[in-house]
Design a protein around this nucleic acid. Structure first.
Length: 423
DNA sequence: TCTGGGGTCCTAGGACCC
DNA sequence: TCTGGGGTCCTAGGACCC
């Protein structure tokens, strides 16, 4: 039986979330910026129409922004995550076979359903009505084709936000593919696009009909799979259960450059604390922790230094205190004075499920239980009273290095003090 | 002045083993 | 002339995604 994979993708997701609570932004050119108000990460249609590209550093755009009255907002991930959860929960009611692919995208397996196009329209209208977020739906026999169908649904108005490749003849489908750049295909990035173009493959259609052997030889198995997927052979399965992370990263650029070890220590403790929370929330333990600091690579005139170090842990743990201790010893190992640091980060590695904790000869079961109950209490209080209510002293209170967010909206749906007020 | 953050998978090459 | 062959594990780096 032909498979029917749908990809539901929220339109301009972060901007749409902001507009939910600030309707005055409707119809205006709006962007949402990355951390530290660095780069453009979400654009309203009005901004896309102006030709402003994704990922561009904001300071380069200020002139253009002023001329067109573009409104720039700092990112508010607490809000976006909550809205995302609402969308995903609603989608799960329409289709139990769901893979949440990213904060604003979900694959649904609609195989066996009779009128998928109509069903997708129903889903789209419900999400708009119940959550307020506009979405587009693409449907195809493979994930890669569902992705492309979604691309078409977004670009071509006549599809009314739903494009169903499975409801088309091959001739019509190929006609569409002939008008899509090869770089738009899921999994074909900048590098591969350039190399494909050199080989004379410039459209999705040309990639679809390119010889599998040659693709395999030139690009490897990944590209070979993409070609198969373009031909309707589903090679990439639907992952309904999110597997636990194999590595957990927490890193941030600073709001200003930092030179003192004291400040870096605060930052590293803060990031390790976050990473440990994520680790515990997926019921895992880490066996190693990597720490890195780095100067600003964009400032070529300044001396550069980007050391990193990996600390193996004595035994696997999820205890914030032990992880911080290791992270700090790593930081002190690599720190050199006299550099202007711009960013620090930690990465938890060798992650295993807590139930698979290796037994060791010298393990102290009583200490493990004590640690577990302390961490559970810590998490409970911070969950209930707000993140950071209880923290290690080393995190610091002032945090002069913390990131810049000049125009951040309220956490309308997750903080009592910041709820929207109806007059 | 001002350039994000968090992930995955694949491959090549080295170390090591029998 | 001619210096084995094959397997595993680990790591670093590349490419890609949102």
């Amino acid at each position: 039986m032909q498979r029917s994979i749908a990809l539901v993708d929220c339109n301009n997701f972060y901007v749409s979330c902001e507009r939910l609570f600030q309707p005055k932004l409707e119809g205006k050119p709006v962007v949402v910026l990355s951390n530290n108000d660095g780069c453009v990460v979400s654009r309203s249609q009005e901004v896309k129409d102006l030709g402003l590209k994704m990922g561009v550093p904001w300071f380069q755009m200020k002139g253009l922004a002023k001329r067109h009255g573009i409104i720039a907002l700092s990112s508010n991930y607490t809000l976006y995550a909550d809205i995302s959860n609402r969308v995903m929960r609603l989608l799960s009611q329409y289709c139990p076979d769901q893979e949440i692919y990213s904060i604003d995208e979900s694959f649904l397996d609609l195989t066996g359903m009779t009128d998928t196009t109509q069903y997708a329209q129903t889903i789209r209208c419900t999400i708009k009505q119940c959550v307020g977020i506009p979405v587009c739906v693409g449907i195809g026999p493979s994930k890669t084709l569902a992705k492309l169908a979604n691309h078409v649904a977004k670009k071509q108005k006549q599809y009314h936000s739903v494009c169903d490749f499975n409801a088309m003849t091959v001739r019509i489908l190929d006609n569409l593919l002939a008008n899509i750049d090869v770089g738009e295909v899921w999994g074909v990035g900048r590098r591969s696009t350039a190399r494909l173009q050199e080989m004379g493959i410039t459209t999705a259609l040309e990639l679809k009909y390119s010889p599998a052997k040659r693709v395999r030889a030139e690009f490897g198995v990944v590209m070979e799979r993409i070609v198969a997927e373009l031909n309707g052979v589903a090679c990439i399965g639907l992952d309904e259960i999110t597997p636990p992370r194999q590595q957990i990263i927490c890193s941030r650029s600073f709001g200003m450059s930092v030179s003192l070890l004291d400040d870096l220590e605060q930052a590293v403790i803060t990031y390790t604390t976050r990473a440990a929370e994520k680790l515990r929330s997926q019921q895992s333990l880490a066996g190693g922790i990597q720490v890195y600091i780095r100067t600003n690579p964009h400032k070529e005139s300044e001396s550069q230094y980007q050391p990193t170090t990996l600390l193996p842990l004595f035994e696997h743990t999820d205890d914030t205190r032990l992880l911080c201790r290791a992270a700090l010893s790593g930081l002190r190992l690599i720190y050199r004075s006299g550099y202007a640091y711009q960013k620090a980060g930690v990465m938890l590695t060798e992650i295993i499920p807590i139930v698979a904790r290796p037994r060791t000869l010298f393990e102290d079961v009583a200490a493990q239980q004590k640690s577990a109950s302390l961490m559970a209490t810590l998490d409970r209080i911070n969950h209930r009273m707000g993140s950071g209510t209880l923290q290690l002293l080393g995190e610091g209170v002032r945090k002069s290095w913390s990131m810049k967010r000049e125009n951040v909206s309220k956490r309308y749906t997750t903080e009592w003090d910041e709820l929207a007020v109806v007059r």
